[in-house]
Amino acid sequence: MIVTRGLTKRYGSVLAVDGVDLNVREGDRYGFLGPNGSGKTTLVRMLLGLVYATSGEIEVLGSRMPRRAAEVLPQIGAMVEGPAAYPHLSGRRNLSLLDASGPGGSRRTRRARIEEALVQVGLSGIDRRPVKAYSLGMRQRLGLAAALLRKPRLLILDEPTNGLDPKGIREIRDLLIALNDNGTTVFLSSHLLSEVEQLCTRVGIVDRGRLVLEEELATIRGRTGLVLVQSPDAADVVPMLNGQLVTRDGENLLIRHGDPAALNAMLVEAGLRVASITEQRRTLEQVVLKVTGAGSDRVDAS
């Protein structure tokens, strides 16, 4: 769905994107991650033909970009750097103008498609208020509705849950998963690592313009060799661990063990109660910090 080869973008002496080879496959829910200033938004804008590459190649939906943009873009729903809208017009009027301005928008089905998109993003009850009166979360939902107007094969989204409350974030996550289940490939950049962890199946991580990791999320969140056990009989469990105990906090025991099922069977067979047993895996945050060198845009006084 998206392939780049040696994709590079320079702004004078600044190398914003440095030789990126990206591979987003059909059916992916792909999370694009990296510190502020790492080149994420620049790369997304190049995918959509909004910024021209200094060098390298881009293929989207099997066609070269930006050369074939006219045939590719109608198949893409996108929201980049926040939703765009005419602030003095209503949400519905904005969507109608957007649909009419692009290729492939059928006037006959426009009203039905607008209503369907508004229902999908939770804005079916909006009135005639101008967009300038909307909350940030409502504007974000409207931007996502605009991306869904033409039932795209590919969604490219930049921070799609920005400004939403926890319930709204969950609703958008469920919507993106449902769209993906119905055949839409999702590519999104986000700073919300916990959200990417719950939504995405693959991730790409950039740092200082370079793609430093691209992998299945389940693979990079590998085993740590640690198991968390909660047991009312914690004091009796400890002597059975042969030095494998890492830490204890009341009933909670962190144990170095490679097989949670075997550990659970041993404790139950010994007549000890196990309230819960959980295999510990690396978090996405741990992975990102490791491969990006914990980069930050913080500036401290010397």
Score class of each variant (00 low, 15 high):
T4W: 13
G6M: 10
T8D: 12
K9W: 09
K9N: 13
R10D: 11
R10N: 13
G12W: 12
S13W: 03
A16P: 03
D18G: 02
D21P: 05
N23D: 15
D28F: 02
R29Q: 06
G31M: 00
L33Q: 05
L33A: 10
G34Y: 05
G34T: 07
G34W: 05
N36L: 01
T41Y: 04
L43N: 09
V44H: 04
R45V: 09
L50N: 05
V51Q: 14
Y52H: 10
S55I: 01
E59N: 10
L61D: 11
L61M: 04
G62E: 08
S63M: 05
S63L: 09
P66G: 03
L73C: 03
P83T: 12
A84S: 14
A84L: 04
A85Q: 08
Y86W: 10
H88A: 14
G91V: 05
N94A: 07
S96F: 02
L98S: 15
L98Q: 15
D99W: 09
A100I: 00
P103G: 15
T109K: 12
L118K: 03
V119N: 07
S124R: 14
I126N: 07
R128V: 10
A133E: 15
S135P: 02
L136A: 11
M138C: 05
L149H: 09
L154K: 07
L154E: 11
L155W: 05
I156D: 10
N162I: 11
L164E: 11
R170A: 07
I172A: 11
I172V: 15
D174H: 01
D181S: 14
G183S: 12
L188T: 05
S189W: 04
S190V: 01
L193T: 00
Q198G: 01
T201D: 05
V206I: 15
G209V: 02
E216D: 15
T219A: 15
R221V: 03
G222Y: 02
V227L: 03
G243Q: 06
G243S: 08
R248L: 08
G250I: 04
N252W: 07
L254F: 08
I255Q: 12
I255A: 08
I255D: 13
R256D: 13
A261Y: 09
A265Q: 14
E269S: 15
L272W: 03
V274I: 01
V274H: 05
Q280F: 01
V288W: 04
T292Y: 06
G295N: 11
D297M: 13
D297N: 14
D297L: 13
S302R: 14
